[in-house]
Design a protein around this nucleic acid. Structure first.
Lengths: 303, 303
DNA sequence: AGGGGGGCATGCCTTCCAGGCCTCGCCGCT
DNA sequence: AGCGGCGAGGCCTGGAAGGCATGCCCCCCT
């Protein structure tokens, strides 16, 4: 008797029973509340019995629901056992390979850790940090499932969502005339040399500032890919750098002044994944990222 | 860890294990062999282990497969128990409501019985004969899930498939001049009166014969809906009747001669169901009907 | 007392995947 | 050598599952 009921439904009941509300259960399951509601309704329909008493402060099991929950637990456990016993070799829990570039390590770590610690029946799929200097090409090549990156990187062929936005600040040698200003404007910088953060191009500077600094004599300096080098170049080269504020805590700022730029675009931290990605796991991770990252440590937030 | 594996997969493995071949298992499951093959492949993929050894004479379980089969049995049994224990009230096994009109009872019974006896994990859905004088309207009204009918009934709004074809024969009183012929032609009947079988109209006679007998003086007689009456009218009224050969065994043929008609269209026994029907159960029943009905008792087949 | 927020249900729309069909390749049997 | 049974692969479609937006209800909170 194929009633259309699948393992899924058993797990759904367990989640709702344990969470106490459909909404919370849905979140834990990595799905939306309406979808979950309907699935359980369908199950109840087939069984001809209500399993939950819906109140306005959540759902509680009916008598029938309680016995079903116990059965469901057994079914679920048994099914998992069956799958693991035979098959644990060759593919343990799959990993979502998360990479990053130009993102503070704190955010990344917190994000992955909170994802993994989610008591989630999703998370098939523990997140694993597999790189911090990832280039977009690696995502295309399938070496990573998702990557965190700062705005103007090449997103062609990728889908992406904004995880968080951080102010972009200017770094200046302490000796610089502007270093003591509490706030500067782009126009103040037209005569400067810039040290470019790894991966940044003159075009990106133009993009950020939404103006063509070069017209006014702007010229690029060296390009570095390391926070310490970045600081050193600025200090020694008497040049100016832009950086997203969240990266500041990871830098050595000796001899460097941080000055907010009033009219520069903010830096978007984006999570990107292959447009062809079919897996729902990635969608879950993205959702988690976008919905929780605001709570992640932006550390010294500059307003 | 939601691996995408569902109860379905467990049942599939059981079916293949028990049947010994994918093809047979697929039939039992009410699905096609390629679909089953793929489902099991996917399962093996997830588990990282082959469950079956594919030979050219079927599939046998590997060692891993054997332990998995045992687990699968347990999971399946437990799941069924969980669904039944709580929910057996209110909706026992649903019934496919099968009706018929102008079809010999033997065929119908055999069909439904063989469907029900199919050791099938489909058959959610035992067939039940709920009527033998069904009008198409009842199907439209949702009072029946499928119906067996003879060709020229109104099929608008229904999907249908041919279950079987039977020769259409002429019934004549023994005293009729043509009664001793071994075979007649439509043209021989242009001067006769016809007794119409229930539901038949003069237009249908024309349809069957693909000619306009009325032009030649043909005229309809009484219309009856009962096999015994049909026979009586023919005997007493000195008229002629057409009927599908499979119905002969259900008639009292005393005083009546059965004569094949060389150039009349055959009678198609069709199974019809609402075009909007969404259920796969109906599809299964239809498939079963069309694939096995040839083996059902056409009883006295006239060639 | 009224407004806001948390919680479930409903309607509509999109997506994606299970399954259907057809075909092929392979083998073994006659 | 031909044929028939069986499994696999390609392609396509329908339907189910899920997402999103919204509605309703009740409780709480100020």
């Amino acid at each position: 008797m194929d009633s259309g009921i699948e393992l899924r439904h058993f797990r759904y009941v367990l989640a709702v029973a344990e969470e106490g509300t459909f909404t919370a259960a849905a979140a834990r399951l990595g799905m939306t509340q309406p979808a979950l509601s309907r699935a359980i309704r369908a199950l109840e329909q087939v069984m001809g019995t209500a399993l939950f008493e819906r109140g306005h402060h959540g759902a509680t099991l009916t008598e029938a629901g309680k016995t079903f929950r116990d059965d469901a637990r057994a079914v679920d456990a048994l099914a998992r056992k069956a799958l693991n016993r035979t098959g644990q070799r060759s593919n343990g829990p799959r990993h979502l390979r998360i990479t990053a570039r130009g993102c503070d390590v704190g955010t990344l770590e917190t994000l992955v850790a909170s994802y993994n610690s989610t008591r989630g029946d999703h998370a098939p799929a523990r997140g694993a940090i597999v790189g911090l200097q990832t280039r977009v090409e690696e995502v295309h090549a399938g070496e990573a499932d998702a990557t965190l990156m700062r705005s103007p990187d090449d997103l062609s062929g990728l889908d992406s969502d904004v995880v968080r936005t951080d102010p972009r600040v200017a770094l200046l040698p302490n000796a610089h005339p502007l270093a003591t200003r509490r706030m500067i404007k782009r126009a103040d910088l037209v005569d400067e040399t810039f040290t470019l953060w790894s991966g940044h191009t003159p075009e990106q500077i133009a993009y950020w500032t939404a103006t063509d600094l070069a017209r006014h004599g702007w010229r690029p300096g060296p390009t570095v890919s390391d926070a310490a080098q970045f600081g050193a170049c600025i200090r020694l080269g008497e040049s100016v750098g832009f950086i997203a504020a969240d990266l500041l805590p990871e830098m050595v700022l000796t001899g460097i002044s941080v000055v907010p730029v009033a009219d520069i675009s903010v830096s978007e931290l984006r999570i990107a994944w292959p447009r062809s990605a079919t897996s729902r796991d990635i969608a879950h991770f993205v959702r988690h990222a976008t919905s929780t990252a605001e709570d992640c440590p932006p550390l010294s937030r500059i307003t």
